[in-house]
Write a protein that binds this DNA or RNA. Structure first.
Lengths: 354, 354
DNA sequence: TTGAAAGCGATACCAT
DNA sequence: ATGGTATCGCTTTCAA
């Protein structure tokens, strides 16, 4: 039951089973046990290490019987690697992250990495603390969706020579060459959304955004502005900035927008889309009759609203996979790549021509 | 700029700064540095360790200048503690977890713990792997929302003497006494939902659930059955089970339910609620006229549907905080507590009396 | 208040 | 194919 411990009173006080215990019990050296425990299985099921297959089998059996579990702290201390990567989204509870986390995890497993998530909660100080924690844990690499003011925190990782991949949000760190990037073509997203409404006959298209100072929002806005300009609608451009987390002022904005003749609205995030749809329902407004709408990210709300809502979707699977690919190749000493992926527009009733 | 390293070519090859480097540079022993680095600040801002305040300040200053960062692998190896707890939700991208993760994190920080998240993705094998990973990382405790068949994985943690708190879902592990629990009063949730529809005049109330075999769903169903029975509607009880992740059969079920006279529907999870609302919209059904509805968990969809939807909300903040409280007290050697919290019903138009 | 030294449990180098 | 042993960076007695 409990290996060579015969008296029940020892069970409670049982110390952790170490590689030495296994070695002694199996009659081999710790070196051998270490080899066996770290060997990956070849496609034939055999262990690909310089150890006799029978010895290996015996070691494995003893380890299982004794309940051996590798102590990663020790391994990491000695080897400097932990086979662990950290993922730090700006907000662990948001839509974008919910959709991408699983893809990241699955891709990481393929490379043999374990993934831990820790949230910065859109707060630079918190990001700094989280960064200290993951660096203290000797992670081999970090995927981060940085929040405003997070430069210093990210530089910590760079100073510690731990590879970093920026996901979803770009950032100027000075030492660009050493940072990987996996981003959405946000300008294109802004263009697609705006053009869709123009094609539907809208002229006075406005936009609501957050005053967060993050690249993705700035780029989506850029796409909106460019498209308005290239369609001769430069003078109709209007962007309203609300605070992240603040609720309520969106309703007033919509009323104002309508009173000045707005006929279309671009919403560059899921949460803004949800707020606006909710406000429109409260105000008894319909889309596209009263206002054309293009939202962002995937959600049940787009199909549940009275009219289905046109929205921009991000290639979450590709974003997740690529961020891991880029990070792993950096861990392996290759250079930092930058990848930009294209969004897609899912047409709905909210941009039907009137 | 870089401490005592004067030549630029050394910067690239700079090894990790250790406690010894700090000790040498500050002219003290490593013991002292260790004391200082681990000291917590008292309320007066002074360090509460047996070290001269001036010496301490000097050490701190040197550590900062050299860019010292504690190696948690070494600390954890030596001390056996990591000041880290792991949270393993059944699905990192689901509604319940999204709402609770922040509360868990904030409560953990109060106790000085770092938290890492890792998802089991509703899969027992995956949970087993994740459990190996977090145990290898020497976490001090684990909060887990177990998936079906996860007993063995959880027992691993128990065997390793790492405290475990079951969140959201109960589970029979044999050795009950050593497992903490923080659960919702799911029976009450089922009762509240059902009673609300009965009060609105419904008689033929049905329920859709998942064939997942998890306690929370079973208990919610129990509450539904009990309430139907105590209202003399035992013969009207009908529960349809769909597969988690499967989409599409809900629409057919609704049609069937209506054809046999159903007038109310209890949806015990968010995802079921979303599926049903979507199906109802496709079918052109209205609530409460065609069917009364009670959904689960908080979401934008409940206010965006043509009629607002009555739903049951869980005390996410309390669930998150309590799970950490219970875990920490277990880490401190106190006994395992079991806590059950009550749900609330948020009334909406979907259960207005007809 | 301070320091010397013994580990914690792996890995990795060097033998054999 | 296998074994001996010196580390990795920190905490933790025990002494001074």
């Amino acid at each position: 039951m409990c290996g060579n411990t015969s008296s029940a009173e020892f069970i409670e006080a049982m110390k952790r089973v170490t590689i030495r215990d296994v070695a002694r019990e199996a009659g081999v050296s710790v070196t051998l046990v270490s080899f066996v425990m770290n060997a990956k299985r070849g496609e034939d099921g055999k262990l690909d290490c310089p150890v006799n297959q029978d010895t290996a089998k015996r070691v494995l059996e003893v380890a299982r019987r004794l309940g051996f579990r590798r102590n990663l702290s020790a391994a990491s201390l000695r080897s400097g690697k932990s086979n662990t990567i950290a993922v730090i989204p700006n907000d662990i509870s948001n839509k974008f992250f919910a959709g991408i986390s699983r893809n990241i995890e699955e891709e990481a497993i393929k490379y043999g990495y374990t993934v831990f998530f820790a949230s910065s909660e859109e707060n630079a100080d918190r990001l700094s603390d989280v960064m200290d924690a993951v660096l203290a844990h000797n992670v081999d690499g970090i995927i981060v969706a940085p929040c405003t003011g997070g430069e210093a925190a990210i530089r910590k990782a760079l100073d510690a020579m731990v590879p970093v991949v920026l996901l979803d949000r770009d950032m100027d760190l000075g030492t660009e060459e050493s940072v990987g990037k996996v981003l959405l073509n946000d300008v294109m997203a802004g263009r697609m959304a705006t053009q869709q409404m123009i094609d539907a006959g809208c002229r006075n298209i406005e936009m609501i955004s957050y005053s967060l100072g993050i690249s993705s929002l700035a780029q989506r806005e850029k796409g909106y502005r460019e498209t308005m300009e290239s369609n001769g609608l430069a003078d109709r451009v209007n962007v309203y900035y609300t605070d992240y987390g603040k609720v309520g002022d969106v309703e007033q904005f919509i009323k104002d927008a309508l009173s000045r003749g707005a006929d279309g609205l671009f919403l560059p995030t899921y949460s803004l889309s949800a707020q606006v749809l909710s406000a429109m329902k409260n105000l008894g407004l319909r889309t596209p009759e009263d206002l054309a709408i293009v939202g962002f990210d995937e959600s049940d709300i787009y199909s549940l609203f009275a009219t289905t809502i046109t929205h921009i979707v991000q290639p979450l699977k590709a974003l997740g996979e690529k961020s891991v690919d880029v990070l792993v190749s950096m861990i392996q000493g290759k250079g930092a790549e930058s990848i930009v992926l294209n969004p897609e527009l899912v047409p709905g009733g909210s941009t039907h021509a009137k």
